[in-house]
Design a protein around this nucleic acid. Structure first.
Lengths: 199, 199
DNA sequence: CAAATCCTCTACCAAATGGTAGACAACCGG
DNA sequence: CCGGTTGTCTACCATTTGGTAGAGGATTTG
């Protein structure tokens, strides 16, 4: 995967924290998955919390990178929103742990959640500015941009990370099902966000 | 709060599982909060998992009761959706643990998630039938009703339970902020779901 | 080549966890 | 008033947890 043992630890921690959860991942289990001893982890990080903290920083960076692309390129208006939503679904398919971690950290609360939100702040700012501009241009319905962002976040992240609910409802977590969900979310969001075209 | 010690245990477990989480709640802590010994818990329930299981059953019933009311009374079309969303927000204000538990159980996965979904199945069925009828009547945009339900679920539950994200973003969890979120969600959902009135 | 640095390991440890065994008091029907 | 049931407790226990202490091999550096 990557260079130092420290990096490998974070790689594995991402998967385990992002799927099983932080509490449910013991240092021993983490070490076991890497075929090293727990003391090696504690050499690279002073304690378990520090592993999470470093992981948050790294993951926020990767998340930002993946989504900034959407905010950067690709037209404006709805196209841009769609591009970002697509980017999130792409992440859900290729790196589900990353979104899982986001959710887990949100659940853990401070200080982890605070750190994650802080690390994602630039992204949030850009999104806010974009949304306001769209509203000013009359392409999007007026809303409090912060609330709007959180609503979009809830919807998309939920549709992408509530694996267990889907499984329990009989939806197998296949690539096909993910595509269907994406189409649905896109349709819903367009109706919800965009002002109807007149003509 | 209520009758038997078994009930009191569930009362307290609801709060703790629903806010701190299942893993983060030890039997000792649970007992401590009730000023009893952990062995008393293990007298009423064979093990920790059984506490969760009983709690799920009880909470699903309460949840159903609170929401069935919305599905039962109050007009049709949008009014009904709004009534249910309002019911959820009312729960968020009065019994946040209940929604917290829902979320926690969804995260825990089988068997807990499966049990919860099964217990809520009647509610889901009714909601599905309602949505299909609305679509057939042309009042709502066409969607796969299951996906639609999950999208609404994600949005509303997210906006109501992602306390930590809101806090980390500087939104204090006040009653006022909850009301604003409710208004926003209602607005968004109406645009997303309902076919525009023509005339 | 010696000394320091870097990295991983073995050996522990105290605290907490879920759970078992069984004493003991209160209560209740015959 | 007595035998059984019910409910809570004390006393343990094995396992797991996050973490410490420090030995020892490799690698770099003077």
């Amino acid at each position: 995967m990557s260079g130092t043992t420290g990096d490998r630890i974070l790689d594995t921690a991402l998967i385990s924290f992002g799927t099983r959860g932080y509490d449910a991942t013991s240092l021993d289990a983490l070490a076991g998955a890497l075929d090293i001893r727990k003391q090696t982890i504690l050499y690279w990080f002073p304690n378990k919390e520090a592993v999470l903290s470093a992981l948050i920083e790294r993951s926020a960076a990767e998340l930002s990178l993946a989504l900034e692309a959407g905010l950067e390129g690709s037209g404006e208006g709805w196209d841009k929103v769609a591009a970002i939503v697509r980017a999130v679904f792409r992440l859900a398919a290729r790196r589900p742990e990353l979104l899982g971690l986001l959710r887990e950290v949100a659940r853990l609360g401070p200080p982890a959640a605070t750190q994650m939100v802080a690390a994602l702040d630039p992204l949030v700012q850009r999104a806010n500015i974009f949304l306001e501009a769209e509203m000013d241009a009359g392409r999007m319905r007026r809303h409090d941009p912060r609330l709007l962002l959180l609503a979009i976040y809830s919807t998309v992240i939920g549709m992408v990370t509530e694996v267990e609910v889907f499984r329990a409802m009989g939806e197998e977590p296949t690539a096909r099902s993910l595509v269907r969900r994406r189409a649905d979310v896109l349709g819903l969001l367009r109706s919800a966000l965009m002002t109807p075209v007149e003509g």
